[in-house]
Amino acid sequence: MRVLVVEDEVRLAQTIQRGLELEGFVVQLAHTGTDGLWAAGEQRFDVIVLDIMLPGLSGYEVLRRLRARDVTTPVLMLTAKDGDYEQADALDLGADDYLTKPFSFVVLIARLRALLRRRAPQQPALLAAGDLVLDPARRHVRRGDTALTLTPREFGLLEFLLRHKGLALTKTEILHNVWDAHYDGPENVVEVYVGYLRRKIDTPFGRNSIETLRGVGYRLIDPDGQVDDESSSTPR
């Protein structure tokens, strides 16, 4: 899941980023209202965390302009401790939720997950390919009756593959959605983590659910509905 955090207090923004990444989110930061508005309008995010007091444009103005452009991404506003009017104004402008500073990180995570559930009720509660099952809400993964332990990055990669089951995904698409839109490291990090995943979800069970597509990227297949494709090849 991709989150945009628009917060001008750099240390707070970085703390939020680190915490969310440990929970498996992909986080992009913006420190001004102008940069936040541009990012939210030009890129796809699953949820936005938006402070009210920002340089350039206030959080109110950013929210107002986003809704005027029909950007429907859920927005959680960060408000002052005693900001009853701020909270009311934020909700009137189209915010989906708010949180007062200082806040509990546990509550922030719970609020964000609630927003994501409300936004996409049509999405299945569980993601599956055969007997491989991932529960996004509880962050559980199992193969048959065996529970699997994944790192946050491995979990995010598997969730992305499962949400696009049967589709060919390029390394660039995977990096953009599981790592960071501004990631500028080597692309082979995707190969490394695909290898990690295979050793946990496939190898012990004699399965091969992640296909390597030569010159393209990867595809997660459903054993009950495999896709024949001339570009598919053996695992790397």
Rank of each mutant, 00 (worst) to 15 (best):
residue 153 R to E: 05
residue 174 I to D: 02
residue 214 R to A: 08
residue 190 V to N: 02
residue 189 V to W: 00
residue 164 H to E: 05
residue 214 R to P: 05
residue 215 G to A: 06
residue 197 L to N: 11
residue 124 P to Q: 09
residue 125 A to N: 08
residue 166 G to F: 00
residue 149 T to Y: 05
residue 135 D to L: 01
residue 205 F to G: 10
residue 161 L to S: 01
residue 123 Q to P: 07
residue 160 F to K: 05
residue 126 L to G: 06
residue 201 I to W: 03
residue 209 S to E: 05
residue 199 R to V: 14
residue 159 E to Y: 01
residue 215 G to F: 03
residue 139 R to Q: 14
residue 206 G to N: 09
residue 174 I to M: 02
residue 136 P to E: 08
residue 177 N to M: 01
residue 193 Y to H: 15
residue 185 G to L: 06
residue 142 R to V: 09
residue 202 D to R: 07
residue 197 L to G: 08
residue 190 V to I: 13
residue 165 K to S: 05
residue 216 V to D: 01
residue 205 F to N: 11
residue 159 E to F: 01
residue 123 Q to R: 15
residue 199 R to S: 15
residue 141 V to M: 07
residue 193 Y to M: 10
residue 124 P to T: 08
residue 152 P to D: 03
residue 201 I to Q: 11
residue 202 D to I: 10
residue 196 Y to G: 10
residue 193 Y to L: 08
residue 187 E to N: 10
residue 207 R to S: 05
residue 165 K to T: 12
residue 171 K to W: 00
residue 148 L to V: 11
residue 210 I to F: 00
residue 126 L to H: 10
residue 131 D to K: 15
residue 183 Y to F: 13
residue 159 E to D: 14
residue 201 I to K: 14
residue 198 R to N: 14
residue 165 K to I: 09
residue 144 G to C: 08
residue 185 G to K: 09
residue 136 P to S: 03
residue 177 N to C: 04
residue 131 D to V: 02
residue 190 V to D: 02
residue 126 L to A: 08
residue 212 T to N: 07
residue 168 A to W: 01
residue 193 Y to K: 11
residue 146 T to H: 14
residue 162 L to C: 03
residue 192 V to P: 00
residue 178 V to N: 04
residue 210 I to R: 01
residue 137 A to P: 00
residue 161 L to Q: 00
residue 178 V to G: 06
residue 133 V to E: 00
residue 204 P to M: 04
residue 192 V to F: 10
residue 175 L to N: 03
residue 205 F to P: 12
residue 146 T to G: 06
residue 182 H to S: 11
residue 205 F to R: 08
residue 165 K to N: 04
residue 199 R to F: 11
residue 179 W to I: 04
residue 154 E to N: 07
residue 199 R to Q: 14
residue 207 R to Y: 09
residue 163 R to I: 04
residue 123 Q to M: 15
residue 172 T to Q: 13
residue 192 V to K: 10
residue 207 R to Q: 12
residue 122 Q to W: 15
residue 191 E to V: 13
residue 166 G to M: 00
residue 194 V to S: 05
residue 190 V to C: 06
residue 123 Q to A: 13
residue 188 N to C: 13
residue 199 R to E: 15
residue 214 R to K: 11
residue 174 I to V: 06
residue 215 G to Y: 07
residue 129 A to G: 03
residue 161 L to M: 04
residue 159 E to Q: 14
residue 164 H to C: 06
residue 205 F to T: 07
residue 181 A to V: 09
residue 203 T to K: 11
residue 203 T to I: 11
residue 140 H to C: 09
residue 182 H to I: 05
residue 157 L to Y: 03
residue 198 R to K: 14
residue 189 V to K: 02
residue 211 E to G: 03
residue 131 D to S: 13
residue 158 L to N: 07
residue 169 L to C: 05
residue 207 R to D: 15
residue 197 L to V: 14
residue 210 I to N: 00
residue 150 L to T: 01
residue 128 A to H: 09
residue 212 T to H: 15
residue 202 D to V: 10
residue 206 G to V: 04
residue 153 R to V: 10
residue 167 L to K: 15
residue 155 F to E: 07
residue 209 S to V: 04
residue 202 D to G: 11
residue 161 L to G: 01
residue 183 Y to L: 03
residue 184 D to N: 12
residue 168 A to I: 10
residue 195 G to S: 11
residue 197 L to W: 06
residue 166 G to Y: 00
